[in-house]
C-alpha cells in the first residue's frame, strides 16, 4: 500500500521534523518472540512493589500507563518507579492527568527519572486546567512527542493485543496529526478510499490498577475498562495492583467477568487504595483536595522555576516512604472516609 498525503499538506502551517519510522518499544515481531519465550504457568504471581519494579522496570523501556484521566491510575506502581528510578522512558497512554505528571515532577527535581518520549492523545486535567509539568517539558523541548486521537492510541494498543502491526482507523486523516505522527494515510485495497493506519503499540511494561484479581492475575475491572485489557495483552510484561485478592473459585464460577487473563499478568500486588488519589469504581472517588494540591505545586514551579515545594512534595509523600502504605498513612482518615462516601458503593462483583 502506497502512502498518500491528504490535502492537509496544502493548508498546514505547522513545521515538523520528518521522522523515519521506528518502533518506540518492541516491534510486533520482537513482542511476539518475547511472548513465545515466556512461561504461561498458572502460578501465584503475588509479589511486592519493590521486587516487581526492580525486576521489570529498566532504563529505556516503553511504559504503558493504564486508566483514563485520574480513574484507576497505577499510582502505587508509579511511586515505586520514582523511588527506584528509570531513565530514557517512553510513556504511552491515551488520556491521563496526574500519572505522567508524577513522573515529570520526579524528572524535574531529581534526575532519577527521565522521560525521553511520550506517545499520547491527551495530557491535562480536563475542567481543572492544563498539566503544568507537561507544558513545561514540551515548551522547553525536553521530551519528544507523538500525538494521536484517543481512538488512535486505544486502537494502537488493540493492534498490539491482536498481534497485528497496524490497525486502520477512520480518523487522523486531514488533520495535522496525519503529518506529525507515525501513522500513515493509505489507499484501501478493498474500497479504493483513503484510510489511516496507526502502528501497533507494545509497551515493554504495562502498569494497571484493578478492583479484583485472583492470585494468578485473572483480573476483574468494573466501571470503565478504559483500554486496560488491551494494554495488558499488548505489553510484553504487565504489573497489576489490585484492591482485593479474590478466590480462584470465584473467577472459575464467573469466567466471563475476567477482563485481564492470568497469562497477561506478570506481577500482582495486593495494594488497597493503589489508585489513590485517583478514583477506583466501587471503592473510592477522587481525592480532589490532594489532586489540586499536587497540581498547584506543579503550577507554582512552572510559573516561578522554584523547585522547593515540588521537592518537598516528593520528599514527604514518596522518598520518605518505604512502601505505598507509608504514603497512605500520611493521608488523614477523613479524606478516605469522604472519597469512600462519594463513591457510594457502586455495584461490583468480587
Amino acid at each position: 500500500m502506497k502512502e498518500i498525503i491528504s490535502p492537509i499538506k496544502n493548508i498546514a502551517k505547522i513545521k515538523y521534523k520528518e521522522r523515519s519510522f521506528e518502533w518506540w518499544g518492541p516491534s510486533p515481531d520482537e513482542a511476539r518472540a518475547i511472548q513465545i519465550s515466556k512461561s504461561r504457568e498458572l502460578k501465584d504471581k503475588r509479589t511486592n512493589l519493590r521486587d516487581a519494579v526492580k525486576k521489570l522496570i529498566k532504563d529505556g523501556i516503553n511504559l504503558g500507563i493504564g486508566g483514563f484521566g485520574d480513574t484507576r491510575i497505577p499510582v502505587a506502581i508509579l511511586h515505586e518507579i520514582i523511588r527506584q528510578g528509570a531513565n530514557d522512558l517512553t510513556l504511552s497512554f491515551h488520556s491521563q492527568s496526574m500519572a505522567p505528571e508524577l513522573l515529570a515532577g520526579a524528572m524535574i527535581i531529581d534526575e532519577r527519572i527521565t522521560i525521553k518520549r511520550i506517545e499520547l492523545a491527551y495530557e491535562g486535567y480536563e475542567l481543572l486546567g492544563l498539566s503544568p509539568l507537561f507544558r513545561y517539558l514540551v515548551t522547553n523541548e525536553m521530551v519528544e512527542l507523538d500525538d494521536y486521537t484517543n481512538y488512535g492510541m486505544s486502537a494502537r494498543f488493540k493492534a498490539g493485543a491482536m498481534g497485528i502491526p497496524f490497525i486502520p482507523t477512520r480518523d487522523h486523516g486531514g488533520s495535522d496529526l496525519e503529518l506529525v505522527n507515525r501513522g500513515r494515510l493509505v489507499n484501501c485495497p478493498f474500497t479504493g478510499k483513503n484510510i489511516f493506519l496507526v502502528p501497533a503499540c507494545h509497551p515493554d511494561v504495562g502498569i494497571i490498577h484493578v478492583q479484583g484479581s485472583d492470585m494468578f492475575g485473572d483480573c476483574r475491572i468494573f466501571g470503565h475498562l478504559c483500554t486496560c485489557p488491551e494494554i495488558a495483552l499488548a505489553s510484553t510484561s504487565t504489573i497489576i495492583t489490585t484492591e482485593k485478592i479474590i478466590p480462584e473459585e470465584s473467577i472459575r464460577k464467573y469466567p466471563n467477568l475476567t477482563e485481564i487473563p492470568f497469562f497477561a499478568t506478570d506481577a500482582l500486588i495486593h495494594q488497597p487504595y493503589g489508585g489513590y488519589p485517583g478514583s477506583t469504581y466501587g471503592f473510592y472517588w477522587f481525592d480532589m483536595k490532594h489532586k489540586i494540591m499536587f497540581k498547584d505545586i506543579c503550577e507554582e514551579f512552572r510559573r516561578t522555576g522554584n523547585k522547593k515545594k515540588l521537592k518537598e512534595y516528593y520528599d514527604e509523600y514518596i522518598f520518605s516512604c518505604d512502601t505505598f502504605d507509608d504514603f497512605l498513612n500520611k493521608i488523614p482518615y477523613k479524606n478516605f472516609k469522604e472519597i469512600k462516601e462519594l463513591d457510594d458503593g457502586q455495584a461490583i462483583i468480587l
Binding site: L120, A121, L177
Partner: peptide, 8 residues
C-alpha cells in the same frame, strides 16, 4: 492537552 477524543 492534545486531541483527546475530539479528533475522532
Amino acid at each position: 492537552p492534545g486531541s483527546g477524543g475530539a479528533g475522532a
